[in-house]
Design a protein around this nucleic acid. Structure first.
Lengths: 180, 180
DNA sequence: TCGCACATGTAACGTGTTACATGATTAG
DNA sequence: CTAATCATGTAACACGTTACATGTGCGA
């Protein structure tokens, strides 16, 4: 799925700026399953405006740079729906962590320990973030997604905690400077 | 993580051809957390050979095209380890399905139903595939990863099954030709 | 005062995908 | 007879990231 669709989807919940969309996709509600940077979002919004799928309104602000607020047009809403009607490609997950895990035998135990603990901490932080989000959001589909994400995170974390030591045991013991 | 690292990691388990690596990354053991195509793998192997991280041996076959079998060198193994020693970036998941889910309100119920059922079927197929894989593999770290993936899949599927109807209820009822 | 948050935007760059070319064998 | 599998490889293309430019106000 491309950034355009992401923008349309986000705008279907209300007006927003490119800045808002980026924040949502890297920190907010959307961040669990998409990711986009300015360099992708701004050109995408330009294109969408050119195709009359969104409108732009410049909100001049005092002291801060002016916001370009985008809103979905009827045509844009139709485009979004028709894009969501065609078959979705399967979920894809990229995990350097699992690649590292697979190579456990080549790595010093300290590295495995550190990688695991870091990952667990990351998930904990994310989970907390999620639960705070779910409370101040009463959009039903969003809650459905947040509940899903929360469950997946919890499951992941529990597995990592429960199987932490088993993985570490597979590493190379105390072979000091295996690094670099 | 780039394709080069993936190749090194795969070769750390034994000799393999580009074809093998691609199969592993799209169908096999690796497919849960990476994905790579020929267009990425072959050039990567070339580069690795140029850097003396792998060696190439051409195996002429009768009837079939000859296999280029690659093997990790000591330098290659070192490179792999040093790459796995530096910080791993967080897991990323891309899901068009969740984007669709988020837009449930704009979509006809039939679409949601179909998307959910398709996803559930996909996961079932994948799970079966995984369990068959785990039996004929006695590499401990691989089993650790496979068990992890299996658990995640089961959790995902259970959530989708349990919350299927709740999501469908959020869609637009029977508004026949909402789809273009 | 340093640097972050706000906010938009562009150009260079990296990386990977898609679609092809090639060609024999085997399964349906 | 058709399609798929085996198997390598390349070129065109799509897409996105990174790093910059620009500029103010606010909190540590």
């Amino acid at each position: 799925m491309n950034v355009s669709t992401l923008c349309l989807a986000f705008l279907s919940f209300g007006e927003a700026s490119g800045y808002d969309i980026r924040k949502a996709s890297t920190e907010g509600n959307f961040s669990h399953f998409v990711d986009a940077s300015y360099g992708a979002i701004y050109p995408a919004l330009d294109r969408l405006e050119g195709d009359d799928l969104v409108t732009r309104r410049v909100e001049v602000q005092d002291g801060k740079p002016s916001r370009h607020v985008y809103a979905l047009t009827d045509k844009g809403r139709e485009a979004l729906v028709s894009q969501l009607m065609e078959p979705v490609s399967p979920d894809k997950m990229k995990s350097e962590f699992l690649l590292l895990t697979l190579c456990a035998e080549h790595l010093p135990q300290e590295r495995l320990e550190q990688a695991l603990d870091q990952r667990i901490a990351e998930i904990d932080a994310l989970t907390e973030d999620l639960s705070s989000k779910s409370s101040d959001c009463n959009h039903a589909p969003s809650q459905w997604v947040i509940r899903f994400a929360t469950l997946m995170n919890r499951t992941k974390r529990d597995y990592l905690k429960a199987n932490r030591d088993a993985l570490i045991a597979l590493g190379k013991p105390a072979q000091s400077a295996a690094a670099e």
